[in-house]
């Protein structure tokens, strides 16, 4: 049993590397070319893709309906409580007035009170993460167990908020209850719980299948 899951893991990891080679992107490669995405059955221009250990994560704002189940799922699994404020994916804070907040012409801007567009924000897992560079305690590191996602070592985190400040999208958040930074670990659990596929996790097995059927030869 253990052997089998190990083999499966290795197979996944191979597909992930092959995929990244094909797309010419490293881990943090956000925008993957449309032709590759359409190979996976994804036609939206608004799609952003991330290669996570467990699969390819696609985020498509045009399918987001603002239900915030991603935030609920994220903090349940990581924090054992429900607390959208510290969710590693942000939907509710942009719900009414988009990323920019209310402006004079709010009725034309993003958000429920504007053009009804949603602005889900996901961690980019930057190659050179601003959050990590800003952390005075060296608490943010690339975790090989998480496919080199940038994660927080809570034993080192001092809760100073430098990561939140430094991130251009302010995605890491200091939990006011624990005084620790909460930051996306690229686990993909949000996607598994998105009821409209605005976040979608395509397992590497399926990516492999799609690549194979589109004539890609694995070395």
């Amino acid at each position: 049993m253990e052997e089998k899951s190990k083999k499966k893991f290795l197979e996944r990891e191979t597909t992930r590397r092959e995929f990244l080679k094909l797309t010419g992107k490293g881990f943090g490669g956000a925008v993957i070319s449309m032709s590759i995405l359409s190979m996976l059955g994804c036609e939206s221009q608004q799609t952003v893709a991330y290669a996570l250990p467990s699969g390819l994560l696609l985020a498509d704002a045009s399918r987001c309906t603002g239900c915030q189940r991603c935030e609920i799922s994220c903090t349940s699994i990581h924090d054992e409580k429900i607390q959208p404020f510290i969710s590693r994916i942000k939907v509710s804070e942009n719900y009414n007035f988009g990323n920019e907040g209310p402006r004079l012409d709010y009725y034309r801007q993003n958000g429920q009170f504007g053009n009804l567009s949603m602005s889900p924000e996901t961690c980019k897992q930057c190659r050179e993460p601003y959050c990590g560079r800003a952390c005075p305690a060296g608490a943010i590191f690339a975790d090989p167990k998480q496919g080199n996602a940038r994660v927080v070592d809570t034993s080192k985190c001092v809760g100073c908020g430098a990561c939140e400040e430094a991130c251009p999208w302010h995605l890491p958040t200091i939990d006011p209850e624990t005084k620790k930074s909460t930051k996306c670990e690229a686990c993909g659990f949000c996607a598994e719980n998105c009821p409209t596929g605005a976040l979608r996790m395509i397992p590497w097995e399926d990516v492999k299948k799609a690549m194979r059927r589109n004539g890609y030869r694995f070395s």
Partner: peptide
Amino acid sequence: IGTGSLKIAGKAKDLLDTNSYML
């Protein structure tokens, strides 16, 4: 603006399983 949490007595895993069962 609420930055706090709703705390659950049981395990989050059980709550998530119940969500999954319902959905």
